[in-house]
Amino acid sequence: MSTVADKLAKKSSSRTNAKQVRLRLVYVDFWSAVKLSFLAGVALAIVTVVSMFLVYMILQATTLLAQLDELLTAFNENFVLSNVISLPQVMAFAAIVAILNLVVVTVLGAVVAGIYNLMVKVTGGLLVGFTSN
């Protein structure tokens, strides 16, 4: 009875008819990189908003915010934490952070594409190998 390792060893020793191609990546399309980084920024923005919502709900469910509110009220009776940290304010903060992250990720994607296109002139590009099975 042969194992998977034996089958792989037998397969690797046999000659395959696959063609191998080695290509150089010498140009990254600027607008494609911007669009891709924008989509990555949108995904990050969604994750940011949802995670902030979940963290707030967990803090509410564990009554940690209420206990912290009682502690701060003992020091200063005029300060009420629940007035400062409420769900609409947390979600507004999360939306602002998400929009800023979206802009930063999109700009960084554009900058990285530009820097790569400039560095290709010095290094000659990235060598990539492809094979067809």
Rank of each mutant, 00 (worst) to 15 (best):
19 K>L: 15
118 L>W: 12
57 M>R: 14
63 T>H: 14
49 V>R: 02
69 D>H: 02
16 T>I: 07
29 D>M: 01
67 Q>G: 12
124 G>S: 06
69 D>M: 02
118 L>Q: 11
45 A>G: 08
58 I>E: 09
99 I>F: 14
74 A>Y: 08
47 V>C: 11
54 L>P: 02
43 A>R: 04
114 G>N: 08
64 L>G: 10
64 L>C: 00
31 W>N: 13
38 F>M: 09
106 T>S: 04
33 A>S: 14
119 M>A: 14
65 L>N: 04
83 N>A: 05
56 Y>C: 06
41 G>I: 01
52 M>N: 13
110 A>P: 03
123 T>S: 15
27 Y>M: 03
38 F>V: 05
68 L>C: 01
25 L>E: 06
35 K>Y: 06
73 T>G: 03
57 M>L: 12
101 N>P: 00
109 G>Q: 10
101 N>E: 05
131 T>W: 10
8 L>I: 14
48 T>S: 11
107 V>K: 12
14 S>H: 08
35 K>F: 11
59 L>A: 13
119 M>F: 12
96 I>C: 11
59 L>E: 14
8 L>N: 11
125 G>S: 06
74 A>G: 08
24 R>F: 05
112 V>A: 12
104 V>D: 00
85 I>R: 03
68 L>F: 06
120 V>P: 01
90 V>S: 04
87 L>T: 10
50 V>Q: 03
55 V>W: 08
16 T>V: 13
33 A>K: 07
47 V>D: 05
4 V>L: 13
45 A>L: 02
11 K>W: 11
48 T>P: 00
104 V>S: 04
76 N>G: 05
95 A>L: 15
28 V>Y: 00
25 L>H: 10
123 T>W: 10
44 L>D: 03
49 V>N: 03
87 L>P: 01
130 F>M: 10
60 Q>G: 08
121 K>A: 13
58 I>A: 15
93 F>E: 05
49 V>D: 00
123 T>H: 13
67 Q>M: 05
44 L>Y: 04
68 L>E: 09
82 S>E: 15
56 Y>L: 14
71 L>Q: 06
